[in-house]
Amino acid sequence: ETWDMPMAYPATNYHSENGTAFASCVRDATQGAIDIVVHAGGSLFAGNDIKRAVQTGQAPIGERLLSAHANENPLFGVDSIPFLATSFDDSDKLWAAAKDAVAAALDEQNLVYVYSVPWPPQGFYFKKEVNSVADMAGVKFRAYNAATARIAELAGMVPVQIEAAELSQALATGVAESFISSGSTGVDSKVWESLTHFYDVQAWLPRNTIFVNKDSFNALDDAGKAALMDCGAKAGAAGEARAKELTDQYLKTLAENGMTVGGPSDELKAGLQGFGATMTEEWLASAGDAGRAAIAAYRGN
């Protein structure tokens, strides 16, 4: 059976390459009974549509940056609470604490969780040196969702809404002067052409999640289900290893191209942690019992 798998990021992105490896793992394990065809770069469904498409059976399997759906259920955004889990290890711990709750939320939406892979940690890109939260005031900051808009608000930055496709141009013409993203975005969009500083504050590590339509999953025999889950576990681990490897490479590439790359000053770090405490409380207020339990489990470790 052929399974079309829409993925949102370009074929050369490690998430997509990892997805392709997952597909061949499943193909081998099932002797071709499940033939997953990867459609990278949003060439089948755009990123925004992939979850709904899998939910309703338009595609049997797909990948999505789940935190984009936090409007539906705050739990989907647990990986993207700013300054809560700020390293690969913390992110793993947080995910271990929250995974079952997220999988249950997906299950309610007719989706079966398979695996997820983190992006490199999010850092700040600026056009100037920033040593404290006060230095951020008045800077035109790209806010693309509720959380980034809130960061702008807390820091006294001017939030500007810029779509991903227009980011490079907006930076070049000064419509935006700062944004928060992983090192990979900076390298992919050659951000050194417009900006000068990268602060590796490791604000959060968003995750791309692979899920299967529940009906398609239930129609598989036990061997097929096991193959999918085993390959998923392998792909999750391989993807994360690759993410760690690439993180350093990305930072090196940014530095090689003339950007000032480094960690935040203590003062900046303290200020950002203050934002983190505020935003975690705000998140907890909206996320209900499951969310509180996940954060408690994370903090208990």
Binding site: N48, R52, Q55, T56, A68, H69, N71, E72, Q109, A143, N145, A146, A149, Q161
Partner: peptide, 15 residues
């Protein structure tokens, strides 16, 4: 109908 049934909401800040 399905957007209503699935309670699908916008992924943007408008929600």
């Amino acid at each position: 109908y399905w957007s209503w049934k699935l309670k699908d909401i916008s992924q943007g800040q408008d929600a």
